[in-house]
Nucleic acid binder design. Structure first.
Lengths: 112, 112
DNA sequence: ACAACCTACAACCCTTCGGTTGTATGTTGG
DNA sequence: CCAACATACAACCGAAGGGTTGTAGGTTGT
């Protein structure tokens, strides 16, 4: 079902709920960067940054490619747009003009 | 500072990172609803739903008004738009056309 | 008046999160 | 070759999350 879609949304918003991760995302949207280069910019261990990058990657907000000994991360702007789209759908619910409103609202409950 | 702005973003994304809360938000965007009416739609205790509503309220995504014995929640579409705006700024970083890019990227670190 | 209803909140439980240190492995440049 | 560097990952820790039950107080309708 679209159970998966909710999972994706969980991952997206959770990934974005940490300011360090948002900052990392900004940086790798502006330009590819290695994990250790990123780590140098924050007052925390390399491992901590590694974990943040992993969370962003699992959420699909960034991608990584191997380049020799370093792992280069790049922001995925399409994923960011998907999150925006999700919010736009919320807005559409408000405006009362979404066709899928039943599915959206019936997703995890019954009317009364 | 805009430390506060990061705090707001933390609260927004954290509030949105739970599917029950997103569902509640959809419902109260579609129309005002009491907490107990919401609670009837989910397979969890009233207290759990109360907490979810409280999280959404603290994040500024919904507002509440008292009507006799019930507390009516309503979604704040302006707040949803603010979250979208934040994502649009991320997109703008990617496109390299945001003027405030320095502030955005210098927010919690130094260049190297 | 009073039973049914709605909300509020404390206390507790288990899991997840964000961080740490420590160890291991692969890569590079001189 | 080998030292410096980049990544990976396990193990641990305290704090925060999401859920529960239990108790209590305001509202409402008959």
């Amino acid at each position: 079902m679209h159970e998966t879609e909710e999972d994706r949304a969980d991952a997206w918003f959770h990934a974005l709920s940490d300011r360090t991760r948002r900052d990392i995302l900004r940086r790798v949207l502006a330009g590819e960067s290695s994990v250790s280069a990123l780590a140098r910019k924050y007052d925390m261990s390399l491992t901590a940054v590694q974990k943040h990058v992993a969370v962003l990657e699992r959420a699909g907000l960034i991608t990584r490619r191997r380049a020799g000994r370093e792992s280069l991360a790049r922001g995925d702007v399409e994923a960011v747009r998907s999150v925006q789209t999700l919010l736009t759908e919320l807005e559409a619910v408000w405006r009362g003009r979404i066709a899928r409103i039943d599915q959206l609202l019936e997703s995890s409950a019954q009317e009364d």
